[in-house]
Write a protein that binds this DNA or RNA. Structure first.
Length: 425
RNA sequence: GGAGGGAUGGGUGAGUGGUUGAAACCGGCGGUCUUGAAAACCGUUUCCCGCGAAAGUGGGACGGGGGUUCGAAUCCCUCUCCCUCCGCCA
């Protein structure tokens, strides 16, 4: 959420930035709503001031055993007026809050202005896509042939967009998860967290999934509980309504969780394989930062995620998302895209964002400088480090051999009892 | 799932209709004393939203929401969370 006072004072700038993001009409009613809300507040509050004064007077009269019935009758009328004005003020306040809650974050000045993902800016590349002397297969062919991936039985027990990992397939998923967690906790200074995989709606509001994107989520019937679409939601909300000491910042957490996404509206997209699933596992990185340090932290978080791809020897590129491609809560995002031989292109495997104070205002995440300083909103960052399922398929495809077997990257062997190759069972 | 108890400021915890935004204690901050520190003593110490150029000023907040009343931390309803006991359970 943007700061109300900031929007009021910089309305034209905010309108322009929204236009750059592709949402030109969002602020049409802002001025009238804001003015109406303040007008009603002033009217209601002046009557409340009178009520407070007269109530004291009534108390005094009663104590002195004098008649107060005239004043009480007058106050009955005032109470009715207050109720009416309060209802109107509440309505316009809710209207304003709804408008603000549906407003995406402002892009950082360094974000390229663009209209589609084609306007994203490539920042750097790492590694060379391998030259195959045979026709590389897709993971949805390799996996079932190796007996490590089963789509048919997954469809039987759950439906489309689910997979069952079997034997070394399951083992590889676990090895990757452990490898990622080990690197981030041992080498990058993140503290491992294991949060709930379900959260309430307040948490989803805090990170910006609600109210706008409920359709992307799975909700539990009869409960105010939703399956998390990413560990960003539970972890970022850990300190909701708390005030942290500035010396504690940056706080760096990583968390392995399952993630659940409805993928409504993605029919016909990535239908084959495990690229787009209703459930996938991810190691997420979350940081709470001082505002003036958050862009440094974004760079280091992105490099922390890149480390995993480098250690696994997977070629990738880093893309700076343009204004039109930015997520709702993000002010700046780097996507990491891994090379997929079957697609012949780079495919998103991580998304690293600085949300600045956007989530902090929604979730009331604050910090204090020194002992007597005022509280300020901190900055939140998050990024995948990495999406485990997509890393799994990137390894299967990039390390495949002509005979359909898969070489295990050196780094991963200690996590698989020294296994060098995955072959048909 | 059943029965009961609870939620007050940074913390503990008083307060059961009218100067209670809130006692007291602890903590924090400032000061006195001291070579320094501790102790002791004195003072100070919540947040949000308006109006105002400012000084200042008004409103709101005692888990959330609603109600009763001229007036609610205090009475009623409802929701959430926590605790104890019983049942069930990995």
């Amino acid at each position: 959420m943007l700061d109300l006072a900031f929007v009021r004072e910089n309305l034209e700038l905010v309108k322009q930035k929204m236009e750059e993001r592709g949402f030109p009409a969002l602020l049409a009613d802002f001025e009238s709503l804001d003015r109406e809300r303040r007008r009603l507040l002033v009217e209601a509050e002046s009557r409340k001031a009178r009520r407070n004064k007269v109530s004291d007077e009534i108390a005094r009269l009663k104590k002195e055993k004098q008649d107060a019935s005239g004043l009480i009758a007058e106050m009955k009328q005032v109470a009715r007026e207050i109720q009416e004005l309060d209802e109107k003020a509440k309505a316009s306040d809710e209207g304003l809050r709804e408008l603000l809650a549906n407003l995406p974050n402002l892009p950082h000045a360094s974000v390229p202005v663009g209209k589609t993902s084609a306007d994203n800016r490539e920042a750097r590349r790492w590694g060379e896509p391998r030259k195959f002397d045979f026709e590389p297969k897709a993971h949805w062919d390799l996996g079932p042939a190796l007996g490590i991936l089963d789509f048919e039985r997954a469809a039987k027990i759950a439906g489309a967009r689910f997979a069952v990992y079997r034997g070394l397939g399951a083992r590889l998923e676990r090895a990757l998860s452990n490898f990622m967690l080990d690197v981030h906790t041992r080498e990058h200074g993140y503290t491992e967290m294991l949060p709930p995989f379900m959260v309430n709606s307040a948490a989803l509001y805090g990170t910006g999934q609600l109210p706008k994107f409920s359709g992307d989520l799975f909700k539990l019937e009869g409960h105010d509980l939703w399956l998390i679409p990413t560990a960003e939601v539970p972890v970022t909300n850990l300190y909701r309504d708390e005030v942290l000491e500035a010396e504690r910042l940056p706080v760096k957490y990583c968390a392995w969780t399952a993630c659940f996404r409805s993928e409504a509206g993605s029919y016909g997209k990535d239908t084959r394989g495990i690229i787009r699933q209703h459930q996938f596992q991810k190691v997420e990185l979350v940081k709470f930062s001082l505002p003036e340090k958050s862009y440094e932290e974004l760079e280091s978080l992105t490099r922390d995620a890149e480390t995993i791809l480098q250690r696994l020897g997977l070629p990738y590129r880093v893309v700076e998302l343009c204004t039109a491609d930015l997520g709702f809560s993000s002010a700046k995002t780097y996507d990491l895209e891994v090379w997929l031989p079957s697609a012949g292109e780079y495919k998103e495997i991580s998304s690293c964002s600085n949300c600045e104070g956007f989530q902090a205002r929604r979730a009331n995440l604050r910090f204090r400088r020194g002992k007597s300083g005022k509280t300020e909103f901190l900055h939140t960052l998050n990024g995948s480090g990495l999406a485990v399922g997509r890393t799994w398929l990137a390894i299967i495809e990039n390390y495949q051999q002509a005979d359909g077997s898969v070489t295990v990257p050196e780094t991963l062997r200690p996590y698989l009892d020294g296994l060098e190759r995955i072959q048909p069972a």
